[in-house]
């Protein structure tokens, strides 16, 4: 009988927090694996258009990005502009940009280089066409039009 009586009057035992670090580490590793580093700050506003036939962009390290859209800061105007790396650029800077991207990769990887065009959906095709023509000139034929999955309602 005494065995049972002992419990009376004893408050609830505190929850053990010794496994808390493990739980947090688990979360940490989850986020480290599923996310990617933000590599460049956007200077242009980009609202990607929607599409249903999207493919996943494989091998992120082999992708170079070209951003086209209206500048976020109003002092740079409202016309769509091209952003390469971390600064504004013009169409004529693209060959140099592509060449640099090529130089920074192995010879074996070069033919897998993809250029991803991240373009705001309200941009006119004129500037996009100019960029595409430049890419053709320098031989960067693999391109990817960045889109979201699904259409906006």
């Amino acid at each position: 009988m005494a065995k049972f009586k002992k419990k009376i009057g004893k408050g609830t035992p505190g929850i053990s927090t010794s496994s808390l670090p493990d739980i947090i580490f688990m979360l940490l590793f989850f986020f480290m694996v599923t996310t990617t580093m933000r590599d460049s700050t956007l200077l242009v506003k980009i609202k990607a258009p929607g599409a249903t036939e999207v493919q996943k962009l494989e091998k992120k390290s082999l992708v170079s990005f070209i951003f086209i859209g209206p500048p976020i800061k109003k002092q740079f105007g409202t016309e769509p502009r091209i952003q390469l790396n971390d600064s504004f650029a013009t169409v004529d800077d693209i060959p140099e940009f592509i060449e640099k991207e090529r130089q920074s990769h192995d010879e074996a990887d070069r033919k897998f280089l993809t250029t991803s065009l991240k373009v705001d959906k309200d941009t006119k095709m004129g500037i996009v066409t100019d960029v595409k023509q430049q890419l053709r000139e320098v031989g960067a034929f693999k391109i990817n039009y960045s889109t979201k999955k699904g259409f906006d309602k």
Partner: peptide
Amino acid sequence: FLVTTTMDVDTGITRKLPP
């Protein structure tokens, strides 16, 4: 890591430009 990384997966339509 939550602050410095992004979760978005890049998706898009892949096309090949003609020479």
